[in-house]
């Protein structure tokens, strides 16, 4: 249907999208997971209540989350340039993607951990478990299904954001869709990128849900 150049471009774009999405998700969790844990335990119902820390992190998370991604993308360009050396292309896009993803992931981790039964936490405390043990073995262990569902949602959202970065030359499928579909009216190429994006989301969603179901022991 397309010539080889276009086909290669689409294949490269798919890889670029996957690369951006997965690396950003990984970095997002490197920051977001500890963030979510601290939010969950310093909350007044948590195991180490600390109003000051909670309020500061809560504010920062809300602030970052209220900036629309497209604006954040442009806003952090100087930072991106300082880190990566350029502000366009898929590697550069990882910077704003991570900044946008981390607080979002932090919130999801927080809410997953807060679902853990207080009674089980109390039981662990009664056995002499310290904070670290409770986090590692009770909170993360018991919430693992919910955390995995969170990963699935996060990766899907980041994939969507990565496509959005195409507007400013972010690389990947979004970039192709904008260049061909918007600037050159070659809608057929745009449609193909959309189909590839949909398939990618479906595959990621499917894997995530399958894993979380497989790991869930709460049903008889």
């Amino acid at each position: 249907m397309f010539d080889e150049t276009i086909r290669n471009m689409l294949i490269d774009g798919t890889w670029a999208t996957l690369y951006m999405t997965l690396v950003s998700s990984l970095f997002g969790y490197v920051v977001g997971l500890p963030l979510g844990i601290i939010l969950a335990i310093t909350d007044k119902e948590g195991i180490k209540p600390n109003a000051v820390i909670y309020k500061i992190l809560d504010f920062v998370v809300n602030l970052t989350r209220s900036i629309p991604f497209l604006i954040l993308l442009i806003m952090v360009m100087p930072l991106t340039k300082a880190i990566v050396g350029q502000s366009y292309g898929s590697t550069a896009t990882i910077v704003p993607l991570t900044i946008a993803a981390a607080p979002f992931i932090g919130r999801m981790v927080e809410s997953s951990l807060k679902e853990v039964d207080k009674g089980v936490i109390e039981a662990a405390q009664s056995m002499g478990a310290g904070t670290f043990t409770i986090i590692y073995k009770v909170l993360l262990g018991e919430a693992r299904t919910s955390l995995l569902v969170g990963v699935t949602i996060a990766v899907g959202t980041i994939l969507g954001y990565s496509a959005m970065s195409g507007v400013v030359g972010g690389g990947g499928l979004g970039d192709i869709a904008v260049r061909y579909g918007y600037y050159r009216y070659e809608t057929d190429i745009m449609f193909v990128t959309i189909i590839i994006l949909v398939v990618l989301v479906q595959i990621l969603q499917g894997i995530g849900m399958m894993l979380s179901k497989k790991l869930d022991r709460r049903r008889a």
């Binding site: 039964d117 009674g119 089980v120 109390e122 039981a123 662990a124 405390q125 009664s126 056995m127 002499g128 478990a129 043990t133 073995k137 009770v138 262990g141 018991e142 693992r144 299904t145 790991l215 869930d216 022991r217 709460r218």
Partner: peptide
């Protein structure tokens, strides 16, 4: 000291994602 004072509860408070043996191992891990 708490390891000398066990506690059981109305709603059992077992770890739902661990099997029976691993639940019993939990205080030993601690």
């Amino acid at each position: 000291q708490r390891q000398d004072i066990g506690m059981i509860f109305q709603h059992f408070n077992l770890l739902m994602q661990r099997n029976v043996v691993d639940n019993i191992c939990f205080p030993l891990e601690i």
